[in-house]
Design a protein around this nucleic acid. Structure first.
Ligand code: MN
Ligand code: MN
Ligand code: MN
Ligand code: MN
Lengths: 223, 223
DNA sequence: ATAAATTTTTAGATTAGACTAAAAAAAGTT
DNA sequence: AACTTTTTTTAGTCTAATCTAAAAATTTAT
């Protein structure tokens, strides 16, 4: 029943994120980068997390989560994503506005609160950015992995998520009319800059730059 | 645009509460009591709050809020009470379960979040305990002040709030069938222990001890 | 294999917020 | 008024989380 500080919880979440998109162990510098602190501060914190058995840490060798550390990281991510659903679905925020608030809300300590929130929201499977919501037990469901940029001409797919979570990118999608869940059909790909011409539901045509397409995740269309 | 720590916000809220139910200035010891810290720690914090112009503080003379300090205290109280309404009305928590969670939620920093939450909840005027919700501008509406213990035989009144917020008291009310909003009619008061016999809506009779009656707030019945 | 560059750790300092023990001020009593 | 008790402040210590500067280990390049 030990309790953890916001700071510790944030480190765990970031270690999880770095491990899941890359190497097996995370470097001190990589963590200093994402925590916006100095390497010396990271070393300090890694020692503390190792004391609490939340990470495996060997000097100069980088760090990875223990089972308990990963379980904890996933509950924080679960909370973050459920609160984002609340903010968008219930309070009407835009998907580009909710990240900072969820960064705070995810630390509210109450399992019952999270589980009641989950049912209030209708047990959503994905957050507003298409990221899967971990189970209460701490299991991360599979996420879509195919990028829109990998589609071939004439292929259709369903828009499922974003890789770039920046407000600028999300607002660009809003302006383009690209919405999660919508079906896109690739009509043409320019060999020069890999930009795509795609059509979306009510017969609308639009151009998608490679920079956008490689940050969009797609999956099979709902038949 | 300055930002305040959870600790600072809690001190402001507690100073507000102590001032509103008592003397003009709050003593160091009184604050040590309610913050569950030592007097020396309180003195430290009062100096810091005075530096930030949130309190008027004179050595050995106690402390009171500045205008800015009071405005801030009231926004924290507003947030606390709105989150309590959310937890009870939307997530189905009991009124005896929500205080600790609201203690954390009240510190989430986003004015827009609070205002959207307010409309989502239907702009409630009172929290689940009958406490009035301050306005966004920082004005505390008048609260009911008449105690059920002050009713006379044959008087009717509407149950509007509680003075004791402890889970034990609230659960006792649940078991008795006393619910905020219900109309009570005093049929008899024992001169021995000041206990009351009261009737509530579907013709139910119940006994209310003085200890309970002096912790219940009442107002005129809705004609 | 050495030297140079990079990464990581250690050492020492700082800040917020708490603590204890002792000094000082205020309040209460004879 | 002088003594006693209570309250409050000061002085000094501690921990979590940060920092900078310097030392040590590792990696890369010659
Ligand atoms: Mn987010
Ligand atoms: Mn998200
Ligand atoms: Mn409360
Ligand atoms: Mn309340």
């Amino acid at each position: 029943m030990s309790t953890h500080s916001f700071t510790e919880e944030n480190y765990l979440k970031l270690i999880y994120a770095l491990v899941s998109r890359g190497a097996d162990e995370v470097s001190t510098n990589a963590l200093a980068e994402v925590t916006a602190t100095r390497a010396a501060s990271v070393t300090d914190m890694l020692k503390r997390l190792a004391d609490k058995q939340l990470v495996h840490y060997r000097k100069y060798q980088g760090v990875r989560l223990t089972d308990e550390g990963e379980r904890l990281a996933l509950t924080i991510i679960r909370r973050h994503r459920l609160w984002e659903v609340f903010l968008v679905d219930k309070l009407g925020f835009g998907w580009d506005q909710v990240h900072e608030m969820a960064e705070e809300l995810e630390h509210i300590r109450s399992d019952e609160l999270v589980e009641r929130l989950d049912s209030f929201l209708g047990n959503p499977q994905f957050d507003p950015h298409g990221d899967p919501i971990p189970t209460p037990a701490g299991h991360m469901p599979a996420a879509p992995s195919q990028k829109m940029a990998d589609l071939l001409p004439n292929e259709s797919a369903c828009l499922l998520g974003v890789l770039d979570h920046s407000a600028a990118f999300l607002q660009h999608l809003d302006r383009s009319g690209l919405v999660l869940g919508c079906t896109v059909n690739v009509s043409e790909i320019s060999p020069f800059d890999r930009s795509m011409r795609v059509t979306i539901p009510p017969g609308q045509t639009l151009f998608v730059s490679y920079d956008v397409a490689r940050n969009l995740l797609v999956g099979p269309t709902k038949a």
